[in-house]
Nucleic acid binder design. Sequence first.
DNA 1: ATCCTCCCCTAC
DNA 2: TAAGGTAGGGGAGGAT
Length: 1182
Amino acid sequence: MGSRLESNSNSVRKRIANHSFNDEDGEEYDGSNFGGFSDYFRRKKIKLQNLDADLRSQSADKPAIFKGVVAHVNGYTQPSLNDLHTLIVQHGGGFMQYLDGKTTVTHIIASNLTPKKAVEFKRYRIVKPAWIVDSVQAGKLLPWNNYRVVDEGENQKVIAFDRGQVSNQANVKTRGYRDQTNSSWYTNQLKSSQAGTPVSTPMPSSRVQSGFSRQRLPTPDDEIELLPPSHQPDIYSRDSSLLVCEREHAPESETLVTPPKTSPSIRPQQDGTDHIRPDDTIEDHHDGLSADPTPPDLTNPKAQPIRQENQSVDTRNELDIASPTKKSDLTAEEHNAILLQDPKVRKSTVVDPNFLEQYYRESRLHHLSTWKADLKSQLQALAAEKSSSQKTKQKRSPGTRRYVLHVDFDSFFAAVSLKKNPQYKEKPAVVAHGNGSGSEIASCNYPARKFGIKNGMWMKKAQELCPDLKVLPYDFPGYEEASRTFYDVILDAGGVVQSVSIDEALIDVSNICAATGGSDGRQVSEGSIYREQAKADEIAQRLRDQVKVRTDCNVSVGIGGNILLAKVALRKAKPAGQYQIKPEEILDFVGQLQVQDLPGVAWSIGSKLEEIGVKLVKDIREITKERLVQTLGPKTGEKLWDYSRGIDRTEVGEQVVRKSVSAEVNWGVRFENQEQADEFIGSLCGELQKRLLKEKVKGKQFTMKIMRRSLDAPMDPPKHLGHGKCDTFNKSLVLGVATNSRDILTKEALSILKGFGFSPGELRGIGVQMTKLEPMKSATDGSFEGSQRRLQFKVSNTEPTSIRKASKRADAADPDPIQDDPETPKKHKSGESSHVPFGAQQLNQSTPSRRPLNTLGTQFIMPTQVDPKVLAELPEDIRSKLLRQARQSSPTPASRNALKTLSRDHSPVNDAPAPFALTALPAASQLDPDILAALPPDVRAEVLAQYAASATPSSPTSRRTHADQTLLPQSPRKNRIIGIPAKKPIVAPIKRSRGPPNDEYVFDNHDIDDHDMDDLDPTFLSALPDDLRKEIIAEHLRQKLSESRLTLVQKQTAAQPLPQPLWKPPTLKIPRAPRPTFTTQKLSDTSDLRKAIREWITEFADEGPYTEDVVALGKYLGRVVKEERDLGKAVGVVKWMEWVVDDLDEGVGEVERIKWGEAVERVRRGVREAAGDRGLGSVCFD
DNA sequence: ATCCTCCCCTAC
DNA sequence: TAAGGTAGGGGAGGAT
Ligand SMILES: Nc1ccn([C@H]2C[C@H](O)[C@@H](COP(=O)(O)OP(=O)(O)OP(=O)(O)O)O2)c(=O)n1
Ligand SMILES: [Mg+2]
């Protein structure tokens, strides 16, 4: 990278110099937090204001004790979110439903806080709900300090240790839910603790000393340093136990795991691990493996971090290693390696080459989904065919009485499987893969239900309910066969059919009934109504009889005037019966149901309803529609309002277009190293490609979903090879051109995965999804052609002429992006490639021309956009950087504009006029040297840096100027990721779980996203014990790092609250301790620092570092150690720098390399000295 | 007001 | 041992 770079170097230099390492912190505060009112913020405020306006005005009499407070509620709390919201707003406070990182939230209210959450909220004051309640009661704002929730949770060893006293009793996980639900208990705890030293708020001093961190300091820090620079530090503590479950709350049925009891370890080998639950939390030894007597060799932990391939990324494990958690010191990879030593286990995991096939073959849920999709497409094709061939009287005239049948097999899987084991028909029996505690019950027969067993329940619980349970094997072919027969019968009925699932269908027989009734189905003729109803019953009876005869299985039928009624009637009809809800009984029938009996209402919505006093459906009628809408949202609120009155206007058999195709695996995911993960992802993308081809579509948006073990979850979850409690991370990107290529998808997926930087051993689930679907060209359907043509037309048309000639490379490689698919279905003629969906004969026969799914529909997507396929093929993160970079310092105006346009970043500044030419990047997965060379220097540098960062050692060096390719912008829409300077972090950080209490909890947080250090309250942070703080920071780093690729800039434009009467910027009043920052940009987050460093090094690679910059960095890091007191962070940054330097392009001269090496050493020295000043002893950077 | 994205939730 | 997939409805909140 040389010459070209230079032309640009000035600007780059300026940039860096600009923010030259100045660490002043003073300005950070005001600048970032209250810089000005962005429209966004203003709007948001306004919105909020409006929302809460009523409440406020209605509470004028109440003291505004929360004035200046802006709260956000996390998780389930004792006074519910709504109640807290009300209390706060009524008393002058502000309330934010979501954290967006920019908004100024002064406090987060939570009953319990897992480490993860602690991390997410690290920059906030986290208080218990009692703070609100007590303050209101007291009539004044009580000190929040006494209500801190530092981490209530269980685990965190960190906490445990310093918490001393409290820890034992209170702590812990088990409490999770209790905390929230049992108010009195909870409140008492709080109060008592407040009395003296706040229990929950360990004094900083004590914590700090107690040492864990202290003691551990040397070690942990050192360990951190061990990390390969490139990778992010993951978190430290892995251990903690957490329990998770917030069970108490759980609605009856589902709570799978009850904490108590024994928790038998699922797998013999592990020692007691499993159990997670209850009480051991504190102890946390649960990891099990540690105790495991197994192979000594592997067991040796940190001694040598595993990292297999150093070069590639992955070493992130180190982080784990870094944390000497109590239990086992094994890295996740080592742990998995031990686990996989058993060949049988190994065979059941993603490590097995044949995993996908085998897994999908056995996964009932996969089968259910597949069957459903097949049925849906078959039925829709059939319907389409029917309606086109014959005029069809399908349409009922408006105002007609409707008769809808909901037909469903009784305990489908169980019933079919029982055919081969009839002796258990009358005994409690279930269908499951095994009888281990974590085996899931797919279906249980009615005798089993008497014991309270339910579908989806884990064996452990089922056996507790019924020790004599008979477990039957699956018989997937049998289910298909029964279903085929079932649909044959149903289709013969003559109504409009809609499949619900393999064992369930809706039939609208209104026309048949009306014909029988003799009237037009509209008049209120008692006789005709009666005849219609009788006809419906008769049809139902006939269906039941036929299915029974032909399959020897019972089906039940619910009949009603709409889908809702048919559905609820079905419940009463079961088992082996039928029930018709007559018009006159609708209100009574529906009214006495529990809200959860309504379709679409389960735990979450049910809970919200319960909060507003609604338990039964009739209770809903007492609630105004406005309130329902306010509580549940416009659609849901109105729908339930209707449902409670027996109203449902949904029609049977509406045609729908598929919107997405995905494949995911969240079981058996146990990698020993990164290669395995990479390979598996390739397989998964292959699977996705297969499905895309089957549907004859390509997609433009790719989304990856990753589940990673929660830091506080045990290595071995209660369920064998299950994912256990996890954090989920999703990332999506828009491809420039639709694809279905496994290779491209794999490349993107790997890029994303690397971006997250997770230790492969911590992965528990991986999914890939394509959306923004477009039909493939090969489709036989005429309409495809139209669409295609249209698209093509656009392409050639819209494209500036320049594109055609300029992009010779692109043309050569792929003359017709649309047409040339990496793979096209082997046979398109038949509706489905090689796959033969099961289905009723009629379905398989009478639909010669049907397509697997309707892919036509909309998706067509902006005709206007033509894609720069080349650019599109770059990994998204690279693309995004390019765009951003271009904006920041593009030397070439043209390219800048082009990029801008491309990015759809409509910065108000200059509107992107017509499409601009754009400098394209290499196509496909590899960077093409020629193209690369043609890039603006800084852009190129960024690309290379990105590649380096992702550890892809590819070093595209060749350079030669090549004609730029001009491309058009593609989507008029903007893509958040691309082009927009990181307002929001891209990564999705963890979310907290919201479901019912369960054994393991999957957390996700969508509430939190960005973490703007500027918003962090240093006071709060510093009040934490060192190790907790460290953990928090480490976690933060990990997240940041993962985000870093995409997000970088942080909100510089800080939003400022509107000066409204009730709404004052609370933050202003909060005293904050300055925190060292780097650069005029006030960088502080590790990811930002890394990025800045990478840019710096990359840009000045050929020039060598400037001393003042090096000194500034060293100085800053020294402050990080001394003031921020985060040696780990400083070390991590140094390692990063070292890594980047080591990875400098080969083109960099030896002299410069040396200079850079010296720079690293100099920075190191700064950190060492600072550490020494703090009495931390020598620092190890390796 | 309406669109879009990124989730959560639900169902089987 | 165990096979915890998958698609669509919809809410929140930002962008336009
Ligand atoms: N959590 C679940 C729920 C259902 N199924 C499968 C097995 C069921 O047999 C089939 C149909 O689901 P139903 O909800 O119709 O349940 P059943 O048919 O078993 O019982 P019933 O319809 O009598 O309530 O789907 C599953 O594997 N896991
Ligand atoms: Mg059923």
